[in-house]
Amino acid sequence: MKLSMSSVLHLHAIAICLALSTAIAGASQTSTQQTNATLVREAFTNWQQGKGTVFDLLAPNARWTVAGTSPVSGVYASKAELAQVVRSITARLATPIVPTVQSIVAEDDVVVVLWHGRATALDQKPYNNTYLWHMTFKNGQITDVTASLDTYVLDDLMRRVEPAHQ
């Protein structure tokens, strides 16, 4: 089979278009990864400075799963449901949790953050916990989270400290 020069050029053009579209898709994916990681990094910085939290990035219908067997472990179907749980924890704290990020890893639409939180409980004992949050993004908002943490430390806080009346 003999290919004409125009057929060869046509095949080259198709190959170049495929290569470029793959490169553009890869660049777009990298850009999304960087954007999501930056959003998370900025949200943690704001939280550390008392100017917001990562929860500000949640979509209204975000699903949040707390792993383990603590009193708050389970699946929450919305930002509002999660807010109730967060209040049950913060009502036992004399100071806000201050986060320190150890690492942020992004791949596709997922950002994973390993972080440590410190606070003082109402009984003046320290609350120190380590968290690993696996967050899925869509259009700049977090839509799904699995939160892993030392549930023993959280369970101890929840059982030991009576919540302040809000």
Rank of each mutant, 00 (worst) to 15 (best):
A59V: 03
S70P: 09
N61K: 14
S78D: 10
S73N: 07
W115E: 01
E107Q: 14
A106R: 00
P71Q: 07
T95P: 07
A91Q: 14
P71C: 11
T100G: 12
V72I: 14
S78Y: 05
A83Q: 09
W115T: 02
L114T: 07
L58D: 00
G68W: 02
R92K: 08
Q102R: 10
K79F: 00
A67D: 05
S73A: 15
L82K: 05
V66I: 14
V98I: 15
Q84N: 15
A121S: 12
L82Q: 05
N61G: 09
A67C: 05
L58S: 02
R92I: 01
V113H: 04
T65D: 06
T100A: 15
T65R: 11
L82M: 09
A106Q: 03
S78A: 12
R63V: 10
Q84V: 12
I89Y: 02
H116T: 07
A59I: 01
A91E: 14
E107I: 04
T100Q: 13
V112F: 01
R118C: 06
S70R: 05
R63H: 06
S103R: 15
V98L: 11
A91Y: 03
S88G: 14
V98A: 13
V112T: 15
S73W: 00
P60T: 05
G74A: 08
V72F: 06
V101D: 08
V86A: 15
S78C: 12
P71G: 11
V98F: 03
V110N: 10
A121N: 08
D109C: 12
G74E: 07
V72S: 05
V86D: 12
V75C: 11
G74S: 12
L82P: 08
D109Y: 06
W64V: 11
L82G: 13
V85G: 13
V113W: 02
D123Q: 01
G117W: 03
A59E: 02
V75Q: 13
D108H: 15
V66D: 06
S103E: 09
A59G: 14
V85R: 10
Y76Q: 08
Q124L: 08
I89W: 02
Y76G: 12
W115Q: 01
R118F: 00
A80R: 14
W64D: 02
T120C: 02
R87P: 03
L93M: 08
R87I: 05
Q84D: 13
V105Q: 11
R92H: 04
E107G: 14
A106N: 09
L93C: 09
V98E: 08
A106P: 04
K79P: 05
E81Q: 13
T69D: 10
